[in-house]
Design a protein around this nucleic acid. Structure first.
Lengths: 348, 348
DNA sequence: CATAGGTGCTAATACGTATTAGCTCGACGA
DNA sequence: TCGTCGAGCTAATACGTATTAGCACCTATG
């Protein structure tokens, strides 16, 4: 690193081509409006100099002067390391990158956001949001206050996953958990299950609410549709509780918990799905080794990534507001953990 | 999207605090030089207004005016999609992100670079390199001409993987393939192998040269040390060739080719490593399903990612040039595909 | 020949920050 | 009384681009 050779600017190009800086800018942006005219010879001359020098406009200056940057920010709410949630986010990122590449945008991963109280903060004394034209928000739980702030500032963004209003509608691309869960409940009812239990993670996220809503809506004809919250660590006690109240099928929000319940059940000499059916409600958010083919559904994560970019570009250039909230269908996974309830048990 | 509310600027802060814009900037950057003095009361007043408004400096303007952005560009040479090389790059990216987070930098994935003749181009009519303070280059083969250009422009960058000089030394963080391959060759010699063959991919990359160099340097005491180039598709013919010239151990550059050779050998009724030892020279660059525990080495990809950020920051702020080329040791993997040659065969 | 209208370009300015030269004001020394 | 000096601030400018008002010139028209 000696003296950094001052980079070529439009002024340099202008001097070489014998025109003004403004003309260079006009040629560069291929402006052909009615009130902007450049003679073909002049245009060619400028273009030739540009080609010779290999000049490319400084994106920073361009952004400062005009409006857009063709940069899409990606804010990952949960700290990326060392948690395994990385693997959960990866498919979203793949989809985002794919679509960003297609529309010619660069991706800015906002990794510099500081962690306060265990979670990343968008807004802090040196936030860099404005480097990007808009931002994609990834994370199970997103701070409502920050969404309010984004709305108030009129900053273009889109959340991956449905979000409640926050001082205005929140643009999002989510998965239609309610429908997916409802379909699984209906499948269970068709197989004769009458006593269903929903096992939640106990977190206040929208994604949990939606699943539970789907469960409740579809389980109306069931004899009993209970709800409890449990984690993987309490699997044994949970299985006892479930059996005690005659539950024949559980709908488990957290994948790791489902895995734990299955082995706890087997440890008690129960068969799955013979004695207890287990339905999972989404992909693993942390890596859990298991060979069990659980019945459940798959979240269209790559597609959500792609569409979030699409929605964001819409928000940025201010097209119709109605399309800024999307719910994508989840693909049901047949699996082997949803069976037919034992009639003897069912008759108790 | 109604009228975008003009964002708060230093001028606004200045007006509110009853000072000049320059003062706001000085306070903001905590300038305490001898020739810049701000009275404590003034400083506090400005800071209070900044806190109240939640103001944060526009990183774009900041970059234009001064020098640095705290953005690290990441250029992925091979097109990311749909090739599976994605999985190969992922560990590098993890390391890069981890270190970038630690030093408070954001990452700019330069996904907008256009693909020409099957490979991404750094330099094109609208390249966005200058958005970042410097750039990390990822890819098996990197165009020497582009490296020349980077050097000429004095643009700070670092390559992941060793690179030959290109109009000057190229800063890099590479894996020490030569040593790793040499160690494997020595291990084979110790086990009694005398006829070794190196199977390359036939690509002109530095990573291939280094491996081959290590092979040649260590194989001097062998009876024969041949070299051929082959791909996974020609596995059967390759095995025939190898057996015909009495080879007892092959060093295979490409992981997929090694997998193919192993199954081709078994198809011929040969045992691995009984009849033929197979040593792989690096991690799979594309996903190849196999249960075989190949003997070989592991590339320290995450660590390379981390150190590439470290080197880049050094290049950017112009510290000692001697440390800008690093080779990291590879971890040897024992595996089960390097055996002892059959004495009968060896005596031919 | 004066006027109108069109063409091709440039000067000037804005974007929001960082930096630096230099201004004002008061205190202090001679 | 004047000069000096330091403290505390501001005016001015640069960074590189996009945009717009408007200038100079030409042609056609009456």
């Amino acid at each position: 690193m000696t003296a950094p050779p001052r980079r070529v600017t439009q002024r340099d190009i202008a001097r070489m081509a014998g025109v003004s800086q403004a003309t260079v800018s006009l040629v560069l942006n291929n402006r052909t409006d009615a009130d902007v005219r450049i003679a073909p010879e002049t245009r060619d001359r400028v273009l030739r100099v540009i080609t010779e020098t290999g000049y490319a406009a400084d994106p920073v200056a361009r952004r400062l002067a005009s409006r857009f940057n063709r940069i899409i920010g990606v804010f990952t709410y949960e700290p990326a390391f060392p948690s395994g949630s990385r693997d959960f986010f990866h498919p979203f990122l793949l989809g985002i990158e794919e679509y960003a590449e297609r529309v010619g945008c660069d991706l800015l991963l906002l990794t510099s956001a500081p962690v306060v109280d265990g979670r990343r903060r968008i807004f802090h004394h040196d936030n860099r949001l404005r480097l990007a034209d808009g931002c994609i928000l990834l994370g199970r739980e997103i701070d409502g206050a920050e969404l309010h702030r984004l709305n108030r500032d009129g900053y273009p963004y889109v959340a991956v996953g449905r979000r409640d209003d926050a001082g205005g509608p929140v643009p999002y691309v989510g998965a239609d958990y309610a429908s997916a869960v409802a379909q699984l409940v209906e499948a269970a009812l068709r197989r004769g299950h009458r006593r269903l239990t929903y096992v939640s993670m106990g977190a206040p996220a929208e994604s949990s609410e939606d699943r539970l809503r789907g469960f409740r809506a579809a389980a109306t004809t069931a004899e009993s549709a209970g709800q409890m919250s449990a984690s993987a660590g309490e699997a044994d006690a949970t299985v006892d509780t479930l059996l005690a109240d005659g539950t024949t099928v559980v709908f488990v929000e957290d994948f790791a918990t489902a895995v734990a319940l299955e082995s706890a059940a087997r440890r008690r000499g129960l068969s799955v799905p013979g004695d207890l059916s287990i339905v999972t409600l989404g992909d693993p958010t942390s890596p859990v080794p298991t060979d069990i083919a659980f019945t459940g559904f798959r979240i269209p994560r790559e597609e959500m990534g792609r569409q979030s970019v699409e929605v964001l570009t819409g928000v940025i250039d201010g097209s119709a507001a109605g399309l800024h909230q999307r719910l994508l269908a989840c693909e049901l996974v047949e699996g082997r953990t949803l069976g037919t309830p034992d009639p003897a048990v069912d008759q108790r």
